[in-house]
Simulated assay, not measured.
Amino acid sequence: MSDALLAAYDAVLFDLDGTVYHGTRVIPGAPETLRAVREHGTAVRFVTNNASKPPEDVVAHLTGLGMPADPGEVHTSAQAAAALLKERLEPGSVVLVVGTESLAALVASAGLRPVRTIAEAAGDVAGVVQGHSPATTWADLVEAALAIRAGAVWVASNVDPTLPSERGLLPGNGSMVAALRTATDREPLVAGKPAPLLFDTAARTAGAHRPLVVGDRLDTDIAGAVAAGLDSLVVLSGVTTPATLLGASPAERPTYVAADLTGLGQRADLLAIGGKAGWRVTHSDDVLVVSGTGEPLDLLRALCPVAWESGTTGTRGDGEAARAALTELGLV
């Protein structure tokens, strides 16, 4: 891997859902790639917005899927949320928890008192923390809404609207956050991606000076990398599609693009977004005109800068090869 993308960085900060696995299903190539990264001597960190599991459970899940890890390599949005509350609240303050017991345990370990209802608080609720849990109910949202309206500091572990799974995209924590946002007319403090805290912490624990962020979401993984000033690789194994990549805002634009994690073993110049041999992309009459021949992903890499500069995402292929590549990318 001496000439691979991996060789240019001293740590890789991996997203999990949609990047390494879909629920209980491993994304092909992930175990082999992670093993190669470790054998190369590059530090590995897992940076996830999923606040439903403590690091030990994440490690158990990864190990069960053939990817051994250590709890110290895992950084979750729940940990970041607890740290954010600790910074803003007095020791012993009451925090209403909407999420899993592991999130409540992190709140307690931060020197705060977790409760589930306002009545349980027996006094003022100073904070509300919200993380993903499949067990969250309307009654939980009621308690949180009342506390937020009464002035509690509201921290969301993340605002991902969806959660990739082996069955498809499921409602994520952001969907529940949206319900409280509507009910309270308030905005939460966001602890997880795209805020840079998780990436900064992960890079620091790895002793990394030039880490690479790898993820499947533009609005969290890539936007978080941009906010932290880090290079990033977006993989098309989860949420992001070629169409959404062409429409990415400046704050959501990756350095590289690959089909999946196996891209880490390829040359950086081949993965980098920009012009590629064999493809010609021009902007004419509010459409991106493509001609030439080559790999569809190379075409996508060549399309991105022209689309981003022109603000145009519509495409037209001149020639059979161009039309076939656009079709494979889902861009026609």
Rank of each mutant, 00 (worst) to 15 (best):
V20T: 01
E252V: 03
E90A: 15
G64W: 02
V214I: 03
L96Q: 11
L218H: 09
S232E: 08
F46T: 07
S232P: 10
G229V: 12
L170R: 12
A4L: 01
A325Q: 03
D160S: 09
A259C: 10
P161M: 10
S157Q: 14
R186N: 05
A191D: 06
G64F: 04
T220N: 14
S133Q: 07
T244K: 15
V12Y: 04
L34M: 10
D124E: 12
V98R: 02
R210H: 00
Q130C: 08
L331T: 04
A135I: 07
P188S: 10
A223S: 08
L271D: 02
A156G: 02
L197H: 13
S157G: 15
P196Y: 09
G192D: 05
E101Q: 12
A243G: 06
A145K: 05
T205P: 04
V26I: 15
G294D: 10
G319D: 11
G229D: 07
P250D: 02
I273F: 02
T100F: 12
V142T: 08
G131L: 07
Q79W: 12
A69I: 01
V47E: 12
V235D: 07
V177M: 09
Y9T: 04
T293K: 14
R217T: 12
S157I: 04
S165E: 08
I273Y: 10
L16I: 02
L5D: 07
A11N: 00
A259G: 14
P254C: 01
P242Y: 03
D15Y: 00
K86D: 13
A43D: 09
D140L: 10
R35V: 06
A43R: 15
P171R: 04
V306D: 09
L326S: 06
G238I: 05
G123Y: 01
Y256E: 09
L13M: 07
V177F: 09
H283T: 11
D200M: 12
M67P: 06
T244C: 08
L189R: 13
L261T: 11
G263Q: 11
S2H: 10
E187L: 12
V213C: 06
T42Y: 05
A60I: 03
A206T: 05
N173L: 00
L300T: 11
V332I: 06
A202F: 01
A122C: 13
S165T: 15
V20N: 10
D57Y: 12
L197C: 00
E252H: 05
V239H: 14
N49H: 11
R316T: 08
R267I: 00
I222H: 06
V26Y: 09
P211Y: 03
K276P: 06
A81D: 11
V26Q: 11
A248E: 14
L169G: 05
L246Y: 04
T48C: 04
L84Y: 01
A195W: 00
S2A: 13
S249L: 13
Y21F: 14
L218W: 12
V153P: 03
T241I: 04
E143V: 02
N50H: 07
H209W: 13
G123I: 00
S249D: 13
